[in-house]
Computed example of a mutant assay.
Amino acid sequence: MPFNIDPHSALDGPSVIVAVGSQEAELISAPHSHPRGQLCGSMRGLLSLDVAEGVWIVPAIHAVWLPPNHPHGGRSHGPFHGWSAYVTPDACRDLPGRPCMIRTSALLKEAVLRASTWPVGEWSQRNRNVAAVILDEIRSLPVEPLGLPLPQDPRLMRIAQAIISDPTDERDLEQWAAWAAVSSRTLSRRFVSETGFNFTAWRQRARLMRSLEMLADDVPVQTVALDLGYSTASAFISLFKRSFGETPASYRRYL
């Protein structure tokens, strides 16, 4: 996105600055960090972010909060219209100290769009009021568990990265353990302790994350289900709805 704001600059300026941009082609952002905290989201399209804690998929009804100086990279999936709000370190003191996903509200989106129209250098009391709304929404909106946490053990990380590259790989836990030269017992135990999910649940989550990318590419729901290894489209739709609160068809309208 061709944002015209440098998040590395103006740390002594307004507590919140907002940029909005569009990109027709895929956007790829190399790993980086900046001294301002960042809340990023989209109005149309799908974004994925890579942080140390895992992979975050960001559809248009969600946004990701990144504390100051937190390394991250990302890319869009297809055409993308998005926004970023950058927050000075002082204003981040009572905001989440770790990356998190939040479900956006109509109030947050309206405040962000309003702030994106401010001329550079203008900082009136009205601007401060809108900035306070943005900060309060970051502080209080519910956290959504849409990330894919990554293990720290190098052997488990190797397995996780292979599954992310190909979520349809049908190897079972014992086969993955042999491939990574780790005992199945250790693999099972450490996946839970390092990601919060057992191996089967984590792999299912990886498939759901991939399904969001495929839906953003306009792949038919039936094809998504079969390509990701679900026995039927209805089985995929049922799991998708339990996980995201909506069917794939209704979810697609945000993409």
Rank of each mutant, 00 (worst) to 15 (best):
Pro167Gly: 06
Thr88Tyr: 04
Cys100Arg: 12
Arg253Trp: 13
Arg155Gln: 15
Leu107Gln: 05
Ala19His: 00
Asp227Tyr: 07
Tyr230Val: 07
Leu39Trp: 05
Pro89Thr: 09
Asn4Glu: 14
Gly97Asn: 10
Pro119Ser: 11
Leu39Lys: 02
Gly74Pro: 00
Ser188Gly: 08
Arg171Val: 04
Ile237His: 09
Gln161Lys: 10
Thr223Leu: 11
Val20Lys: 11
Pro68Ala: 00
Asp136Pro: 02
Phe236Gln: 08
Ser76Phe: 05
Leu47Cys: 06
Gln204Phe: 06
Leu239Thr: 15
Tyr254Ile: 12
Trp56Tyr: 14
Pro151Ile: 00
Ile57Gly: 08
Gly54Asp: 03
Asp217Ser: 13
Glu26Arg: 12
Gly13Lys: 01
Arg155Gly: 02
Ser22Glu: 15
Arg114Lys: 06
Asp153Ser: 07
Arg242Thr: 13
Asp169Trp: 05
Thr200Tyr: 12
Glu213Gln: 15
Ala225Trp: 07
Ile17Thr: 12
Arg139Ala: 12
Leu39Thr: 03
Phe240Glu: 03
Phe191Ala: 05
Pro59Leu: 09
Ser231Met: 12
His77Gly: 03
Ala63Asn: 09
Pro99Ile: 01
Leu107Thr: 07
Gly41Phe: 00
Asp169His: 05
Pro59Ile: 10
Val58Gln: 07
Ser48Ala: 13
Leu215Asn: 10
Gly54Met: 03
Glu194Leu: 00
Lys109Met: 10
Arg139Glu: 04
Thr223Gln: 14
Ser42Val: 11
Met157Tyr: 11
Tyr254Pro: 00
Pro59Thr: 12
Ile57Ala: 11
Gly41Arg: 06
Val221Ala: 11
His34Ile: 01
Ala30Thr: 11
Ile61Tyr: 13
Val87Ala: 06
His32Ala: 07
Leu11Met: 04
Pro71Asn: 04
Arg203His: 14
Pro67His: 01
Pro99Leu: 02
Arg93His: 10
Pro145Met: 05
Met209Ile: 14
Asp90Cys: 06
Leu239Arg: 15
Ser211Asn: 06
Tyr254Lys: 08
Asn69Leu: 12
Asp90Leu: 09
Val112Met: 03
Arg158Tyr: 10
Arg203Cys: 15
Met101Ser: 11
Pro89Ala: 08
Arg171Cys: 04
Arg158Gly: 13
Trp202Asn: 11
Arg242Val: 12
Pro154Thr: 04
Thr186Gln: 12
Ala115Arg: 08
Leu255Ser: 13
Gln161Trp: 13
Ala85Ile: 03
Gln222Gly: 11
Leu148Phe: 12
Ser211Val: 13
Ser234Pro: 03
Ala162Cys: 10
Ala225Pro: 07
Ser105Thr: 04
Leu212Trp: 13
Pro248Ile: 15
Trp56Arg: 10
Val51Ser: 09
Thr104Phe: 00
Glu144Asp: 13
Arg44Pro: 05
Ser165Phe: 12
Cys100Trp: 00
Pro99Phe: 00
Trp83Asn: 05
Arg44Cys: 09
Glu110His: 08
Ile163Arg: 09
Ala180Thr: 03
Ser211Asp: 04
Phe191Asp: 03
Arg98Thr: 13
Ser124Pro: 01
Ile57Leu: 14
Leu148Pro: 14
Pro96Phe: 08
